[in-house]
Amino acid sequence: MAVKGNQSPDVFHRELGKIMWNDCGMARTESSLKRALEEIPKLRESFWNEVRVPGEVDELNPTLEKALRVADFLEFSQLVCQDALERQESCGGHFRQEYQTEDGEAKRDDANFCHVAAWEHQGEGQKPKRHQEELEFKEIALAQRSYK
């Protein structure tokens, strides 16, 4: 609320939405994700310099509620892109265009990415730490799924 810029939180939310839709949508590439990772910190900086939240802190303040959410989104979207960049395979809703079969299907890399990843916050401006939990399949063998 101390920023006193002249843009509503919605303006930044829409801008972030465009970045995520274009560069971290259903189909993403190394270059689009890297571009998003350059754009998001810039947008975050302009948010913290140009946002305006009128009203009071101790009264109902929908603009403040929105601003707090957008501030979270501006951090979380960066992590989403970071995670998508690290996972160099296509899997489920994560389709990296570099990793596809000849007929355009998602191509997994079970040798390197048969795990779930969790990111640990390391402080503001620090790269978060990636933790891995291996996926072990005992009853069934891993196979490529076909939706055709």
Binding site: N6, Q7, S8, D10, V11, R52, P54, G55, L60, N61, P62, T63
Partner: peptide, 18 residues
Amino acid sequence: LDVINDRLIHDGKEPIAF
């Protein structure tokens, strides 16, 4: 109302709560 509120905020006024 969203559009009006964006404009009010831009002009430094308090948006309409709904």
